[in-house]
Design a protein around this nucleic acid. Structure first.
Lengths: 258, 258
DNA sequence: ATACTATTCAAGCGAATTATTGAATAGTAT
DNA sequence: ATACTATTCAATAATTCGCTTGAATAGTAT
């Protein structure tokens, strides 16, 4: 019966040998993404390089456990490590990782009603009116506003609203002095399902700033073809891909063994 | 001082209660994507609605096992079921699912050297020279070529090369009469890491057609801002009806009954 | 060197996942 | 009604996963 298919040879030899390997390889990535803790860790890492201890604390778990998860992510080539003093900092391995997290986030927000529910509950009584795209555009052009991008820095580099400053949520509290206390601050993030901007607004209001979030986020801004920019000048990519070379050799070897 | 910052739970309540729920929810999706078999099934489903038996056969597993996997995908809201006669057809639940599969594929191709390795092995001695973007463009404008998009139909709808015809790889063999045997056929797919176009070319050459693949794929074409189009609802229906003619009759019948 | 720190490794245990088998269900056809 | 089909359910055994604990390692600082 299995042979039937092979003989029938409907189309493609990909159904057979190579495909299985490919799907198995792809599943290395999705497996790495399949644990809530690891998703949380990735999100934390995306917001800025952190060491194991910080990550463990932020993700509310033991250091050993965090380390284990991180190594799994590392084996899936989703994160990279960098030694600094006697600490090891984790960063995302590639912008595509952000891309996949974003897609995942968008899909989850769209499909899983529970998430909307949770978000709704979180924002209950906390969500302030958002500013609309055209209104923000007008305020920008008349310089009546300060726009901050509270997403992870990598995402800012990949494209941001013109005139916006990158202040990842993590850093916001320590960088308040960069913000004006007379003109309004507009925070934006990934979109309607993303809480980053809401959290930023909450923090800013608590500190006495005038703040609102943008309706939607960067994807919607881009979609509307409103003025955006990206940080091409940043040239970190070069080093990125080099680091994997050693590990790669290892991986191939162990694969051959099997 | 660093300790202060870390200990102080300040900024975001998202780190606490709601966040865990959200990550757990997101992980429902990634868990569903974390098995090779399910990735394979999704890919098959993406290439056109299929029933359980077909899927099981194509994925080379038992019907019961396929059914189990499919239900898992269904619970994660990644696929949808539709009854037709006494068969149940599975289709993707949302275009975003294609998006996430694509991102995953791209990331995997970029990060996991093994995949390149496998692809290289598969294509060993099989890969024919590809046609470059500018060359194809010129041939298109002088009508010296037939362009076919061998990706799943959903992806064709989301955007395709101008003048291209949608012939998912699955259907290629049964639709050969639509192709000219005097002018060259150019197949394209998702990009350099995607084998669909190569498989199409192989099949076509075996059948005596003149065929080559495009260098890169749709994303690269879009990136170069070359002429593209996307499928409006009208096209969509027509395409649908064309290829599903047999099935469609059934469908219409049963729809009328309802 | 020695002590110290951050991180990783290793073993163990309960829970979850995968594929298999055989039976049950819900539609369809006669 | 009865037989039939496509699909799902239920029980299983082997495997893997996630977290904990306690020890080992590889750097740094004195």
């Amino acid at each position: 019966m299995n042979n039937m298919k092979a003989n029938n040879m409907k189309t493609c030899s990909i159904e057979n040998a190579p495909a299985e390997t490919i799907y198995r390889q792809c599943s290395r990535i999705t497996k790495a993404l399949s644990s809530p803790k690891r998703l949380q860790l990735l999100e934390l890492i995306a917001q800025g390089g952190k060491n194991v201890e910080e990550l463990a604390k932020a993700a509310n778990t033991s250091v050993a456990n965090a380390s284990q998860h991180l190594q799994l992510l590392h084996n899936a080539c989703l994160v990279r490590t960098r030694r600094q003093g006697n600490k090891i900092f984790y960063t995302l391995a590639d912008e595509e990782v952000v891309a996949i997290l974003n897609t995942l986030w968008r899909l989850a927000g769209k499909q899983l009603v529970e998430i909307e529910h949770v978000i709704g509950e979180y924002l209950n009584g906390k969500r302030f009116e958002a500013i609309s795209q055209p209104e923000l555009l007008e305020r920008i052009s008349s310089a009546q506003v300060t726009v901050i991008d509270v997403r992870p820095r990598e995402e800012f580099w990949a494209g941001h609203i013109a005139t916006a400053h990158s202040i990842p949520l993590d850093e916001l509290e320590t960088r308040l002095e960069e913000l004006p206390d007379n003109t309004e601050v507009i925070a934006y993030c990934r979109g309607p399902y993303c809480l980053l901007a809401d959290q930023a607004v909450e923090l800013l209001r608590n500190k006495g700033f005038k703040a609102r979030r943008l309706e939607g986020g960067m994807p919607e801004w881009k979609l509307a073809k409103l003025p955006a920019a990206d940080g091409n000048s940043d040239n970190r990519e070069i080093e990125k891909l080099k680091t994997n070379s050693k590990r790669t050799v290892h991986m191939i070897k162990s694969q051959v063994k099997e």
